[in-house]
Simulated assay, not measured.
Amino acid sequence: MSGTGTTTPIPPVAGRADGYRPGRTLPLRVELARQVKRRRTLVMGAVLALLPFVLVAAFAIGGQPEGRNGRVTLMDTATASGANFAATCLFVSAGFLLVIPVALFCGDTVASEANWSSLRYLLAAPVPRARLLWSKLTVALGMSLAAMVLLPVVALGVGAVAYGWGPLEIPTGGSLPAGAAAQRLLVVIAYIFVSQLVTAALAFWLSTKTDNPLGAVGGAVFLTIVGNVLDAVTALGDWRDFLPAHWQFAWADLIQAQPEWSGMIQGAAVSVAYAVVLFALAFRGFARKDVVS
């Protein structure tokens, strides 16, 4: 402070413009607007929204599902109510269809910028590398969750119109009131999202390693399929417990009178463990990467 009572201004940091705030670069709303407007987002949303209509048409043409060899499955109760139909849509799509939007949104996000030769310009803005990855990852995960919510919400509405609003008929016997069924479906969606974190992390890591979006998305989908194949090899025994694919349908334990949580807890733990490692590799590798595109 000078003798006149005025304060001495703090000189700006060398190489940094006045008013620059690293945490305010690439706001989430800007990244979200960019990703939502892309054609692949609109196409993916349309595919997920149309699936319930396709299944209703299939049941209308093929007739009511019937039990096989005296054993009733979730598919066989699909037309019992709107809640049953929504649960069936999740059942038929969780193994593969819902993997695609996760791999697409998380695998395309960084690699597409490199492919368009715009990644280096984003970093020159300047957007800190960690900030860029956090913004893109947050938006990609948000859009993946939105995709998982869109399908059952549309299915619940379509099913309620086609088959009525009523309790969820449990395949093994009994039923759940509509309100309780809706709550269970919310938990199912949350679990499917957590179980797909490993696919999201794998796609995101590949997206930071290549400038080919198709390679990142396709690689994540391919390795997810490999995991499903390995899980079908019963000779692996208890080793399958370490495969995320082994627990992808553990949420079916909620579709019963007394829910069972142990499988879902194990599945969530396995998925999160793999995801944390892969996300860490993505951030660590990208921080040291020589970005030339």
Rank of each mutant, 00 (worst) to 15 (best):
G3Q: 06
T4W: 11
T4S: 13
T6I: 09
T6K: 11
T8A: 01
P9Y: 06
P9K: 05
P11V: 10
P11G: 08
P11H: 09
A14R: 14
A14Y: 09
G15K: 05
A17V: 15
A17K: 10
Y20I: 08
P22R: 05
L26K: 01
V30F: 02
E31A: 14
A33H: 09
K37A: 14
L42S: 00
L42Y: 02
L42N: 02
V43C: 02
A46S: 13
L48P: 09
A49E: 04
L51K: 05
F53T: 03
A57F: 00
F59L: 14
A60Q: 13
G62C: 11
G67D: 11
R68E: 11
N69T: 06
R71N: 10
T73Y: 05
M75E: 13
M75C: 07
T79C: 05
A83D: 11
A86Q: 03
A87K: 02
L90V: 09
F91K: 05
F91N: 12
V92I: 15
A94R: 07
F96E: 01
L97P: 00
I100G: 03
G107M: 09
T109K: 01
N115K: 01
N115Y: 04
N115A: 12
S117Q: 14
L119M: 12
L122K: 01
L123S: 04
L123T: 08
A124E: 07
A124P: 15
A125R: 08
P126S: 14
P126W: 09
R129E: 07
L133E: 07
K136N: 08
L141S: 10
M143W: 08
S144W: 12
L145P: 02
L150C: 12
P152Y: 07
V153G: 00
V154Y: 07
A155Q: 05
G157W: 03
G159I: 06
A160K: 00
V161F: 12
V161L: 15
W165Q: 05
E169H: 00
G173Q: 03
G173D: 04
G174N: 06
G174R: 04
S175W: 00
L176G: 01
P177Q: 05
A178I: 00
A178R: 04
A180N: 09
A181V: 06
Q183A: 13
L185C: 04
V188E: 03
V188K: 03
A190V: 14
A190S: 10
A190N: 07
I192P: 13
T199A: 09
A201P: 15
L202K: 05
A203C: 10
W205V: 06
D211E: 10
N212S: 10
G215Y: 08
G215D: 06
A216F: 10
V217T: 10
G219Q: 00
F222D: 00
L223E: 00
I225Q: 06
I225H: 01
V226I: 15
G227T: 02
N228Q: 12
V229H: 05
L230V: 14
D238K: 13
R240K: 11
D241K: 11
L243Y: 02
L243F: 08
A245G: 12
F249L: 12
F249D: 07
A250V: 10
D253V: 07
L254E: 04
Q256P: 13
A257W: 04
Q258P: 01
Q258S: 13
Q258N: 12
Q258H: 14
G267C: 07
G267R: 11
A268F: 09
S271H: 06
S271Y: 08
V272K: 00
Y274K: 03
A280P: 13
L281E: 04
A282W: 01
F286Q: 13
R288A: 12
